[in-house]
Simulated scan of single mutants.
Amino acid sequence: MRKNAIRQDVVETASRLFYKQGYANTGINQIIEESGVVKSSLYASFRSKGDILMAYLEAAGATTDEALKAASEKFEDPKDKVLAVFDYLVALVQEKEYYGCNFLNIISEIPKDAERVRNQIRKQKNGVRNLFANILKPVHKEDLADEIYTLFEGALIGNKVHDEVWPVLSARKIADQLLK
């Protein structure tokens, strides 16, 4: 098996396991077993479980950024673009295999001094903030990006706590009112 294929198999397996069971509850041996990769091949591609986590966060970040951007690009009007991001979130949190925000799940598990992981999560979350700012810039409302972003994050947390869609719908409603 080529190194890139091994790396991809490990990241795909770890991504599924980290997302579904959590980082702390997923062991290297389980990743090896479920990916079908030999232990020496895994360690040839990754020095540690932390390196696998970083690859997971990078992949999840790229997928999330693309999905949010694609949702917003369905519309021309900035307000509709922002609301489309919330509509995407409404649909996402109702999926059967939705276990919460990848990044918020991980940040709640890692120690405060895990700077490399925190920086990666911060980078992804700043991307969401910047998406809102870029959407709102043409109508000179980019100063609302932080408020919209805070609603977005609050909706994710509220959904995780209550396991219901209403926090996302409430956040969307407030975003709609802010952008009038």
Score class of each variant (00 low, 15 high):
113 D>M: 06
171 A>G: 02
93 V>S: 01
94 Q>I: 00
3 K>L: 11
120 Q>T: 12
71 A>S: 12
157 I>W: 06
14 A>G: 04
80 D>K: 15
98 Y>L: 01
73 E>M: 14
151 L>T: 11
38 V>Q: 10
69 K>Q: 15
159 N>V: 02
98 Y>H: 10
93 V>F: 07
166 W>V: 09
71 A>R: 03
106 I>A: 05
67 A>R: 06
94 Q>W: 01
166 W>E: 13
124 Q>L: 13
102 N>A: 10
155 A>I: 07
158 G>E: 04
40 S>W: 05
23 Y>N: 02
127 G>D: 12
158 G>T: 02
48 S>W: 07
79 K>A: 11
25 N>T: 04
4 N>S: 15
152 F>L: 13
125 K>R: 15
66 E>Q: 13
147 E>W: 07
116 R>M: 12
107 I>K: 11
23 Y>D: 00
161 V>Y: 09
146 D>V: 12
126 N>G: 13
36 G>H: 03
173 K>C: 09
172 R>I: 00
60 A>R: 13
53 L>A: 06
44 A>T: 09
52 I>P: 01
96 K>Q: 13
82 V>H: 02
51 D>L: 01
73 E>V: 04
121 I>G: 06
129 R>G: 08
11 V>W: 00
79 K>N: 08
164 E>R: 15
45 S>N: 13
1 M>I: 10
98 Y>V: 03
2 R>H: 11
138 P>Y: 11
30 Q>W: 03
179 L>P: 08
145 A>D: 08
71 A>Y: 01
144 L>S: 07
117 V>M: 12
97 E>K: 03
70 A>W: 00
43 Y>C: 03
77 D>I: 09
40 S>Y: 06
107 I>S: 14
154 G>K: 10
147 E>D: 14
91 A>P: 09
130 N>Q: 15
150 T>W: 08
15 S>Q: 03
108 S>F: 09
124 Q>A: 14
59 A>K: 02
148 I>C: 06
154 G>E: 08
173 K>R: 14
167 P>T: 03
110 I>H: 06
87 D>E: 11
39 K>G: 00
21 Q>I: 02
73 E>R: 10
94 Q>P: 05
82 V>R: 01
38 V>M: 07
143 D>G: 13
111 P>Y: 07
145 A>I: 04
84 A>C: 08
108 S>K: 10
119 N>W: 06
129 R>V: 14
109 E>I: 10
12 E>A: 10
149 Y>W: 12
168 V>A: 00
63 T>Q: 15
13 T>V: 05
43 Y>P: 03
165 V>C: 10
72 S>Y: 05
51 D>P: 07
116 R>S: 14
142 E>R: 08
154 G>M: 10
25 N>I: 02
54 M>Q: 13
157 I>A: 13
168 V>D: 01
25 N>Q: 13
27 G>K: 04
123 K>V: 07
